[in-house]
């Protein structure tokens, strides 16, 4: 709850390079949120309306299938970047968890830069693919939507994710502490354990 306000304070107080990064980052984050949340809502609305149409009027909504499939593609690939921003990509942290201090920070920088490299490569490859689809003029079967428009989500998602990982590496180079993403500091949540212990202790008091 107060972590967001703390974040804002910090952004205000820092000028220059990091401040500019954070501003850019916030703008991109807003874009991702609108796209991802919007796609989920649109999917729920479309599919429900299709079912209702089928039940009441024996007539579903033409193109429900292909639009749903397109929405999933957009969510997935724009989500790559959004998940990177919130350090939510699944990873196997057993070894990483054992490291501390500089070693941990160094490994995180290597991981971030390596992942960024892959993201940029996929951005390049998917950009080529989108151009090829554009040239071949492939469209969907029911609504004849050009696929290249929808699949532009891939290069965009990958490049934004790549930028996220570079920013994470930069943040770790500039700022003290270990940062799992540009704006999220690393840490486990001990609060529930502490609360429970405290409550148990309180219960046993006379």
């Amino acid at each position: 709850m107060n972590s967001t306000s703390a974040k804002r304070d910090e952004q205000r107080s820092r000028g220059g390079f990091l401040g500019a990064l954070l501003a850019l980052d916030r703008l991109l984050g807003l874009l991702e949120r609108v796209v991802i949340g919007g796609c989920i809502l649109a999917m729920a609305l479309l599919m429900s309306a299709h079912v209702v149409g089928n039940l009441l009027f024996s007539q579903g909504i033409a193109g429900t299938y292909e639009i749903t499939e397109m929405l999933i593609v957009v969510i997935t690939f724009v989500g790559v970047s959004y998940a990177a921003r919130h350090a939510r990509h699944i990873s196997m942290s057993a070894i990483y968890d054992q490291l501390e201090g500089r070693a941990r920070k160094a490994l995180l920088i290597v991981i971030s830069l390596g992942t960024a490299l892959l993201m940029f490569y996929f951005c390049f490859k998917s950009f080529e693919y989108v151009v090829a689809l554009h040239d071949r003029g492939r469209t969907s079967a029911a609504l004849h939507i050009p696929f290249w428009m929808v699949y532009t989500a891939l290069p965009i998602g990958f490049v934004l994710a790549g930028i996220q990982y570079v920013l994470t590496a930069l943040r770790n180079m500039i700022s003290p502490g270990v940062w799992r993403s540009l704006t999220e500091r690393e840490g486990y949540d001990e609060s529930v354990l502490d609360d429970a212990a405290a409550e148990r202790a309180a219960d046993t008091q006379p």
């Binding site: 089928n54 007539q59 579903g60 033409a62 193109g63 429900t64 079967a141 029911a142 609504l143 004849h144």
Partner: peptide, 19 residues
């Protein structure tokens, strides 16, 4: 199949094509 021409064909026959 979710295909505009096939849908139109079966609508022309009077059916309610479903995908």
């Amino acid at each position: 199949m979710d295909n505009s021409l096939l849908r139109a064909t079966y609508q022309a026959y009077g059916a309610s094509p479903i995908t």
